[in-house]
């Protein structure tokens, strides 16, 4: 007999937590909904807008977001027993690219084009970026060989070599590809496929832009001018 009466309050109590759950659920749903609608609208941050403005002026280069990547810590040999580390990139613009001396076509022409870019910038009395060519074939490209090879195009250019492990660490961290293919004819040679674009590092070591192939002196010069002028 007691049971219906005792049951009643018990029943009303039991939907209280249910209501609370429902409330939370609705609130969460509304919140998610607002987030969704915020996402749907083009929300462009100030930084993004700035990047888009500069990007529109570039002919071939592509800009990375501000917080994309920093040049990682490294230390590699060049020239006559000198070492280059990330600290040497501070306070100046740099162009970093990858290749090897057993490459007859693309690499020497790219170095030649970079020399053309530098002489163009010099003519226009602009800041000259530090040009660094890193071998993806350090086994064959010794430090000494790199110094002579790179110096042939421009004495100020830096040719980095070192241990394959150290080079691979740097290239991997920078997202640079190097893939080794043995001579198809069974010779003692091998070839290296590698990333063709060049990286532009800003004075605060940010990986700022990619100079995309095909590399042309005029295009690179124009794009470098735009990038350097907009991020100083």
């Amino acid at each position: 007999m007691n049971s219906p009466e005792t049951n009643k309050p018990a029943q009303s109590k039991s939907w209280l937590p249910m209501a609370a759950i429902a409330c939370i659920a609705i609130a969460a749903g509304v919140f998610a909904g607002t987030r969704q609608s915020m996402k749907g609208q083009p929300q462009v941050s100030h930084d993004q807008q700035a990047i888009q403005t500069v990007q529109a002026k570039l002919e071939s280069a592509t800009l990375f977001p501000d917080d994309f990547k920093q040049l990682p810590a490294f230390s590699l040999p060049y020239g006559e027993s000198k070492m280059l580390s990330e600290a040497d990139f501070k306070g100046k613009w740099s162009v970093l690219f990858f290749g090897f001396t057993h490459c007859p076509d693309i690499c020497p022409n790219t170095l030649n084009e970079m020399n053309g870019v530098v002489s163009q910038l010099t003519q226009d009395q602009l800041a000259i970026p530090q040009v660094v060519f890193i071998t993806v074939d350090p086994v064959r490209d010794t430090v000494e060989k790199m110094a002579k090879y790179v110096g042939h195009f421009n004495e100020a250019f830096i040719g980095l070599s070192g241990d394959l492990t150290d080079i691979t660490k740097l290239t991997t961290e920078l997202g640079i590809v190097a893939s080794y293919t043995a001579d198809a004819n069974g010779g003692d040679g091998y070839s290296v496929d590698h990333t063709a674009s060049m990286l532009v590092i800003d004075p605060e070591l940010k990986v700022r832009a990619k100079l995309n192939p095909p590399h042309k002196i005029e295009t690179i010069t124009k794009d470098l001018k735009t990038i350097m002028a907009n991020y100083n």
Partner: peptide
């Protein structure tokens, strides 16, 4: 006789 080509930003050489 080789052919240089750049595919997906990777420079390659083909015999």
């Amino acid at each position: 006789i080789h052919r240089s080509l750049i595919k997906d930003d990777v420079a390659k050489m083909e015999l």
